[in-house]
């Protein structure tokens, strides 16, 4: 079965129930016998939340494979009763780090490296990598719609939706 994507976005104050909404949808679809995986993208520039103040950002959740991740991954594991990995959470900082390292290696053969398509392509690659092997990939986009930082993630979500087709992609907006 081709993987189907569910994107979860938020319209009001950050994280107000978005993680729980995404996890609950995951739980319901899992109960239907589907293989569900979850992904959280965080639009900030920190490479991971490991160095961030828990007072502002909440707990740092540590995965089995030793990644320091967003606390929503804790909800995913608890609701789905399933282990998450380092690829189930990434930040804008991580995406930029990868793209810039590739640019330094010369991978882009002299082209101008831009948000569209280079950053958005890297985001799409990470969506696909995390979704691999699952029936359903639920992708929660951190922050709120309209934030400058989240724009490349929204654009990547829109493109994936278009490529996957109507029946294979769904947008859930929490407001």
């Amino acid at each position: 079965m081709t993987t189907k994507y569910i994107f979860v976005t938020g319209g009001v104050v950050s994280s107000l129930g978005k993680g729980i909404t995404a996890s609950s949808i995951g739980k319901l679809l899992q109960s239907r016998g589907l293989q569900v995986t979850m992904l959280k993208c965080d639009p900030y520039i920190n490479v991971d939340p490991g160095t961030m103040n828990p007072f502002q950002h909440g707990e740092v959740f540590v995965t089995e494979d030793g990644a320091e991740t967003d606390l929503d991954l804790g909800h995913y594991e608890r609701f789905l009763n399933k282990e998450m990995h380092h690829f189930n959470n990434f930040t804008a900082g991580k995406v930029y780090e990868t793209v810039i390292a590739r640019e330094r290696r010369g991978d882009f053969l002299g082209t101008t490296v831009q948000v569209i398509p280079h950053i958005t392509d890297e985001i799409k690659n990470r969506f696909r990598a995390a979704a691999k092997g699952a029936d359903i990939a639920i992708i929660e986009i951190g922050g709120t719609v309209g934030d400058i930082e989240s724009l490349p993630f929204m654009e990547a979500a829109r493109q994936i939706g278009l490529e996957a087709g109507r029946e294979n992609s769904l947008n859930v907006h929490v407001t």
Binding site: T9, G11, V172
Partner: peptide, 15 residues
């Protein structure tokens, strides 16, 4: 703003 970006929501969850 979601529409501006070109995303039409299929499901609306209201907190």
């Amino acid at each position: 703003k979601l529409r501006e970006i070109g995303i039409a929501p299929d499901v609306l969850v209201c907190r």
